[in-house]
Design a protein around this nucleic acid. Structure first.
Lengths: 131, 131
DNA sequence: AGTCTTGGCGTACAAGCGTACGTGGTTGTA
DNA sequence: TACAACCACGTACGCTTGTACGCCAAGACT
């Protein structure tokens, strides 16, 4: 659809916060982000402005407060970002990344269980599609 | 260990090619990359220079040809890059990305089988560590 | 010997990024 | 009403990234 310029790393964090919070004022986003890391209010403001400039967010003045809302869906952005990463770092192959994630980053037992189910499910539909 | 500046997207592709090929001249890297996408020879050269400047590669003149070799190991770079992505786009949680990869990008049947084994293995060691 | 090709190396340059500051208006408070 | 806190908005600035060009020397070809 719309072909937006890619998000930078910093912009991504702000976008993620915005997805989590829903429409929010700069200060609210700022405070949410503050809890995780030290960042300047103005920096957040600039990122939000850029997010809007790139077409990832909209904003409107509500009284004298500008409220930002995500425009692009998280799923879309994640898809594009991950596709790009997989392309560049793994030459387009998905499995090496999956392997890396599962082996090198901790996965809890209940998550493992979920994973197993996920696989069962896919396996079943594979069987159907390619008998 | 050494704290290198992060790789940019473009640099990553060159690094990956270099890992795949082992030590190689600029032209060799260029030709390998050409097959996948259109890129200028000088661009590749600049990326290799920057890779070295950032400490990800070394080079030495062999006759009048400069041979570049990867210095950082792929595993390390992948770890750092993926950690960063997971942090920024998923707030540090691994599972959403794993889920995304498995659900949204095609995984072949034999890869599914491999995944299942991987999970069995981890499950077993989990059991041992936390009885 | 003269010309073509190839490579190294220096340099460029606009756009994007990270990180803010300052100004001037608005609102809540003493 | 004077003052402090808060906000939007414009602006800045050095660094990085993407994408090259041009010059010069060494080897290859005629």
């Amino acid at each position: 659809m719309v072909d937006r310029p890619a998000l930078s790393k910093g912009e991504m964090e702000v976008a993620r916060t915005l997805w989590q919070m829903g429409p929010a004022a700069v200060r609210a986003v700022y405070q949410a982000m503050c809890e995780e890391k030290s960042i300047d209010f103005s920096t957040v403001q600039t990122y939000l402005r850029r997010l809007e400039a790139k077409g990832y967010a909209t904003s409107k003045l509500e009284g004298r407060i500008r409220i930002y809302a995500a425009k692009a869906r998280a799923k879309t952005v994640i898809r594009d970002t991950v596709n790009d990463l997989v392309e560049r770092l793994f030459g387009g192959e998905t499995m090496p990344l999956v392997r890396h994630l599962i082996e090198e980053r901790g996965i809890a037992a209940d998550e493992l269980a979920e994973l197993r189910q996920l696989i069962e499910r896919l396996d079943a539909s594979d069987q159907q599609e390619a008998p």
